[in-house]
Structure formats: C-alpha cells, structure tokens
C-alpha cells in the first residue's frame, strides 16, 4: 500500500480511561507469560509502534530499566502485535488452554 497519512487525527484528542475498559473484561491469568520479547535490544532501537497499536496497552517501554514491559495479563489475544511488530521480535503463543481472555458478551 502506498498510503501516506499525515498522522491525520481530526477529532479533538479524547482522554481514554483504558483501565476502565479493560476492567470490563474477564481474564483468567496464565501462570506463565504467553508473550515474550525475543531481544530487548531490538526494542531499544525500535520506534516501538506496539506501544500505540496494541488495543490493550500490553507493551510499555520502561525507560529507566531499558526494557519492554509486557503486561500479558491484559492481552486480548487479537494477534496484531504478532503481525505488526516491525522486527518480528515478539514470541507470540496462545495462552495455556482455558486461560487468558474470556468475554462476557463477545
């Protein structure tokens, strides 16, 4: 695609309480993370679009620690990061059967 958007936000910026949104979802946390950063150094050098495109803000760069923190507990398992990480630097698996997200409506 040859699309060039100029970061075209038109609507006035809205403040979103993502915590409140995520709070509506039912999760059963897996015992071990199903998402892993393959190489933190790659993230350090990256523009990290995952911090914006992830619908659950799973990825947050910890500047102080110099590492990407992965809040896998809130993952909606949509798979966007699996496809959209510019460096395929995310080891993406399904959470253990029965764990992870379980919607109430869907």
């Amino acid at each position: 695609m040859s699309v060039q958007t100029q970061n075209g936000k038109q609507a006035a910026p809205v403040t979103v309480n993502l915590e409140a949104k995520l709070f509506t979802i039912r999760y059963k946390a897996d015992t071990a993370p199903h998402l892993a950063i393959r190489d933190q150094a790659v993230c350090a050098a990256c523009e990290r679009p995952c911090e914006t495109f992830c619908p659950a803000r799973v990825y947050e760069w910890q500047a102080g620690e110099g590492r990407m923190h992965v809040a896998f507990e809130n993952c909606l398992e949509c798979g966007t990061c699996r496809i959209a990480c510019p460096h395929q630097n995310i080891d993406w698996r399904y959470p253990t059967g029965g764990t992870g997200i379980a919607y109430r409506y869907g």
Binding site: E19, F23, A29, E73, N74
Partner: peptide, 8 residues
C-alpha cells in the same frame, strides 16, 4: 502505577 491487573 495502578494497572488494571494489579488493581483487581
């Protein structure tokens, strides 16, 4: 910080 996974 108070991420939802802690607050619950």
């Amino acid at each position: 910080s108070g991420a939802v996974q802690h607050v619950v």
